[in-house]
Design a binder for these strands. Sequence first.
DNA 1: TTGACGCATGCCTATATCGGCATATGATGC
DNA 2: GCATCATATGCCGATATAGGCATGCGTCAA
Lengths: 117, 117
Amino acid sequence: MMLPMARAATTSDVFNAIAEPQRREILVLLRTGERPVTELAQELGMTQPGASKHLRVLREVGLVRDRRAGKQRLYGLDARGLRPIHEWTGGFERFWNESFDRLDAYVQDLKQARQEE
Amino acid sequence: MMLPMARAATTSDVFNAIAEPQRREILVLLRTGERPVTELAQELGMTQPGASKHLRVLREVGLVRDRRAGKQRLYGLDARGLRPIHEWTGGFERFWNESFDRLDAYVQDLKQARQEE
DNA sequence: TTGACGCATGCCTATATCGGCATATGATGC
DNA sequence: GCATCATATGCCGATATAGGCATGCGTCAA
C-alpha cells in the first residue's frame, strides 16, 4: 500500500523563510536595529501574534536572534544565513549577463530580418 | 462577516520559485545547457509530470524559457530573474560580516571572563 | 501576591502546493 | 488520417502554512 507522498518538508530552510514577503520586510526593518515584537508589528502593520509567528520561523532558521531586555524581548538580525543564498544566486551571475547578450542578439536579428523583408 | 484571510498569494514570485529544492536543482542543471523535459527528469530522478510542473512554475516567473525543437521542447535558463535576489541578499552583506565580528568579540569576552575567574 | 504588560501558542478556517497517476494535447512521420 | 513519441494537465490525497482570535505564560512593579 503506497501512501501518496506530499509536499517535501521545506520548513526550516532559509530559502523558504525568505519566500514570505512579510518576513523579508521584518529582516529589512531589523537592519536599523533591534526591536521588540510589538514595535515591529506596529511599524509593519501586522498583528502581534502574526509578527511573533514570522519571527519564530526566522529564528528557527537562524536569521534573527532574541535577547531578553527587562519585560521585553528584543529581536535582532543575524544575516549570516543569507550569505549562502547570495552565493547561490551569484553562481548565475555569468548567465544573467549572457542572457542579456543573447536577448540583445535576438532583437538585433529581428530588426535585421525586418529590414530584409 | 469577516472571512479568515489565508496564506498570501506568493505564487508567481521568484523567491517562492527557488524555495523548492528540486527547482533549484533544475536551474543548476540548466546552466550546462538546454534540455528537453524527459532528459531533465531522468537526470534529476524525478517523474516527467513532476518535472513539467516545476518547469511551469519556473517559466511563469521567467527563470526558464522554452523553445520547440522538432518533436521536443527545449528548456533553457534565463537567470535574469535571480539578479534581484542576489541584490536583495547583497543588501545584508555588511550585516553578516558585522555578525561575525560580534560573535568573535563575544567569544573573546567569554575567554577573558574565564581567565579572570 | 497580584495586577498589568509583553509575547508566545493553540485552535480553526481557507488555501496553496507537492507527488503520484492517468489522460489529454501536440507535433511528427508514414 | 493514424500511430507514436514528447509534454502538459487534471484529479486526488496529504500536508504545510498564513491569518484571525482568544488565551496561556513569564516578568516586573507595587
